[in-house]
């Protein structure tokens, strides 16, 4: 479980995160949603320590991450898997080497054990027998899946996904969403997903935090969001014609 308590962050005079609190539960797909520029990615970067918070607490199973020393932070980070928006696969390494990387760094597994684990992870993301491909040879969806395989290679307790569906077609998006959800359930991971893809919100949003102009504006789940009357959230969720039709259909019932 990850808890954030009253976290704030400013860049210069601009306050981008303003007193946000939320609990990301273990074994659930926790979503942070909001418009572009609302501060979603900043919250995630604060949570993993890529930016420092101005005030507040970030608790990983009770450990206040920002106050930990360098070594303790590294220990917490070893339990984190992260899927970046662009994949962030190492270009000079094959898929196998990419997925094996955290195992090489942090485990004493034998070569055979590592290969078994790599094949297991690649199999999980439906990239079986693609071990020797380089990231440059992969499509956008395959890169995301490969990055997901690397993120889960070292059995993370916490999984962060930054806009896992951006730039993907609807069908591939669903594949990625289902993968994230099934991995969360199977390995009982605390998963945090940043998205503004409404399909993902409805499909996998077990716990949702809506951020509006850096502030926590609404919390709930995928069922609640379709019935919301919060004006800013209604504007965000039902911005497209398709979602308006969904809204009308839900309200008729």
């Amino acid at each position: 479980m990850i808890e954030i308590k009253n976290i704030s962050k400013s860049f210069g005079d601009r306050k981008v995160i303003d007193d946000v609190s939320f609990t990301f539960e273990q074994g659930k797909t926790n979503l942070i949603i909001g418009e572009s520029g609302s501060g979603k990615t900043t919250i995630m970067k604060l949570m993993v320590g890529l930016h420092e918070i101005d005030c507040g607490e970030i608790l990983y199973d009770g450990q206040n991450f920002p106050t930990l020393g360098v070594k303790e932070k590294q220990e917490v980070r070893k339990k984190i898997g992260m899927l970046f928006q662009g994949g962030a696969l190492f270009d000079s390494q094959t898929l196998e080497e990419n997925v094996r990387f955290p195992l090489d760094m942090f485990t004493d597994m034998t070569k055979e054990e590592k290969l078994d684990r790599v094949n297991f992870c690649l199999d999980k993301v439906q990239l079986t027998n693609r071990n020797n491909l380089y990231p440059g040879e992969l499509s956008g969806g395959m890169k995301k899946r490969a990055a997901l395989a690397r993120a889960i290679a070292n059995n993370p307790q916490y999984l962060f996904c930054d806009e896992p569906n951006s730039g993907l077609d609807p069908k591939t998006s669903i594949v990625i969403d289902n993968l994230i959800q099934s991995l969360t359930k199977e390995f009982n991971i605390t998963t945090v997903v940043i998205t503004h893809d409404m399909n993902s919100v409805v499909e996998i949003g077990e716990k949702i935090l809506y951020i509006y102009k850096g502030k926590p504006w609404w919390t709930g789940n995928s069922q609640d969001i379709l019935k919301t009357t919060n004006p800013e959230l209604v504007d965000f969720v039902f911005a497209s014609g398709f979602m308006k039709e969904v809204f009308n259909a839900v309200n008729k019932k």
């Binding site: 890529l50 590294q74 984190i80 190492f90 990387f101």
Partner: peptide
């Protein structure tokens, strides 16, 4: 960033 988050 990916390296840093892995704890490297």
């Amino acid at each position: 960033d990916a390296l840093e988050i892995m704890g490297i």
